[in-house]
Amino acid sequence: MRQSMTGFASRSGETAGLRWGWELRGVNGKGLELRLRLPDWIEGLEPLVRAAAQKALARGNVQISLRVQGGNEDGAAELDEAVLTRILSAMARIEGAAAGQGLVLSPSSAAQIVALRGVLSSNATPADVAPLRAELMAAFAEALTEFGEMRRHEGAALAEILTAQLNEVEALIAQASEAVEARREEQAERLRGQIARVLEQAQGVDESRVAQELALIAVKSDVTEEIDRLTAHVGAARELLAAEGAVGRRLDFLMQEFNREANTLCSKSGSAALTQIGLTLKTVIDQMREQVQNVE
């Protein structure tokens, strides 16, 4: 089943006097990029989260965040005097260095300093984080499952849209084939007229040479190969949509091939009807490419 790279999931709970909440957000990306925002005091949590996410996901820009707060109602937290002292000392050195360079820094507010990591610490932080880590990972596994289900739901919707667009492309290819057949006699008549005019107006012209040149023009305006390749691309796209695993990159490459053939079709069309079909085809292909960007 196809998966989108877009998704969201969350889980929250309370344990050991702490309130916690997981949040996962995903958007499209070229590969798998994980952005983790986790409390650094829960030792060993990050590698477990990263390994679980890498096992479950193949592509996407995914942000995973965990917030842990004191479970008491007033959210009481203690000021870490050692951390505060180090931060204020560092700020003083920075301001001194800036002044030495003739720079004036804007003053920092108490609220900004308090918001810095480590300045406030929860008085409910457990000494042994192993039980908390185990419970958090169990909840994360549930959130990751929910995240995957949402991505599959979005992927199913994407597959339906892309299938409808492929049907439209297929119909346009059929119209192009009909337009080529309708154009064939018109082109032949035009070529016969061109040969006759050249032979009438020029003396000593090598008729075989003229015929070769006109035949070359006819070959250059033939779009049979482009139509055949477009038909093959439709089949390949349908196979990728039905395949297992991440196929987004291959679909994106295929969209480039679709677009190349449509461009060539337009440049070689030789008729207003076929040009219009080619332009419509390019529009549908562009719409497909936008959707493909979200396929895992």
Score class of each variant (00 low, 15 high):
Ile94Lys: 03
Leu162Glu: 07
Ala164Met: 12
Ala110Leu: 14
Arg184Ala: 15
Leu144Tyr: 14
Thr145Trp: 04
Asp128Gln: 09
Ala111Met: 06
Ser108Val: 10
Phe147Asn: 14
Glu135Thr: 14
Pro126Ile: 08
Ala115Arg: 15
Val114Trp: 10
Glu178Phe: 03
Glu149Pro: 02
Pro131Lys: 11
Ser108Glu: 11
Ser106Asp: 12
Ala111Glu: 11
Pro131Asp: 11
Asn167Gly: 15
Ser89Asn: 10
Arg183Asn: 06
Pro126Val: 05
Ala164Tyr: 09
Ala98Pro: 02
Thr145Leu: 13
Glu181Ser: 11
Val104Gln: 12
Leu116Ala: 15
Phe147Gly: 13
Glu142Ile: 10
Leu172Met: 03
Arg117Met: 05
Glu170Leu: 09
Ala174Ile: 04
Leu158Gly: 03
Leu136Asp: 05
Leu136Cys: 07
Pro131Trp: 06
Ser108Asn: 11
Arg183Leu: 10
Gln112Thr: 12
Met137Lys: 08
Gly96Asn: 04
Ser177Gly: 14
Pro126Tyr: 00
Leu88Asp: 03
Ala157Asn: 14
Leu136Trp: 06
Leu166Val: 01
Arg151Tyr: 04
Ala127Gln: 10
Arg152Lys: 15
Ser106Thr: 11
Glu160Asn: 09
Arg183Trp: 06
Ala124Val: 01
Thr163Leu: 05
Ala179Val: 00
Ala115His: 15
Gly102Val: 07
Ala115Trp: 13
Arg152Pro: 01
Met150Thr: 13
Ser106His: 11
Thr145Asp: 15
Ala176Gln: 04
Glu186Thr: 09
Ala98Val: 07
Ala157Val: 14
Leu120Phe: 06
Ala159Trp: 14
Leu132Glu: 02
Gly118Pro: 00
Ala111Asp: 09
Ser122Arg: 01
Leu116Gly: 11
Ala174Arg: 06
Gln101Leu: 15
Gly96Arg: 04
Val129Asn: 00
Ser109Pro: 09
Ala157His: 13
Ala141Asp: 10
Ala130Val: 07
Leu144Ile: 14
Gly118Ala: 04
Ala143Lys: 00
Ala111Cys: 01
Glu95Thr: 12
Glu185Tyr: 10
Glu168Val: 09
Thr163His: 06
Pro107Ala: 12
Ala138Leu: 13
Leu172Lys: 00
Thr163Cys: 05
Leu120Thr: 01
Leu105Glu: 04
Ala115Leu: 12
Arg93Val: 05
Val114Thr: 11
Asp128Ser: 10
Leu136Ser: 05
Leu162Met: 15
Leu103Glu: 13
Ile173Tyr: 00
Gln112Met: 12
Ile113Arg: 07
Ala134Gln: 14
Val169Met: 03
Leu136Gly: 07
Ala99Lys: 10
Arg184Phe: 05
Val129Glu: 04
Arg133Gly: 10
Glu181Gln: 07
Ile173Asn: 04
Gly155His: 10
Gly148Cys: 14
Glu160Trp: 06
Pro131Gly: 12
Glu160Leu: 10
Ala110Arg: 15
Leu172Gln: 03
Gln175His: 02
Ile173Cys: 03
Ala97Gly: 08
Leu136Glu: 03
Ala90Phe: 09
Arg152Phe: 06
Glu154Leu: 05
Ala164Arg: 15
Arg183Met: 09
Leu105Phe: 02
Val169Pro: 01
Met91Val: 06
Phe147Asp: 10
Ser108Ile: 06
Gln112Trp: 06
Ala134Pro: 02
Arg183Ser: 09
Ala134Met: 05
Val180Asn: 11
Ala97Pro: 02
Arg183Ile: 02
Leu120Lys: 03
Ala176His: 03
Glu149Met: 07
Arg184Trp: 01
Ala115Lys: 14
Arg184Lys: 13
Gly102Pro: 07
Ala115Thr: 13
Ala174Met: 01
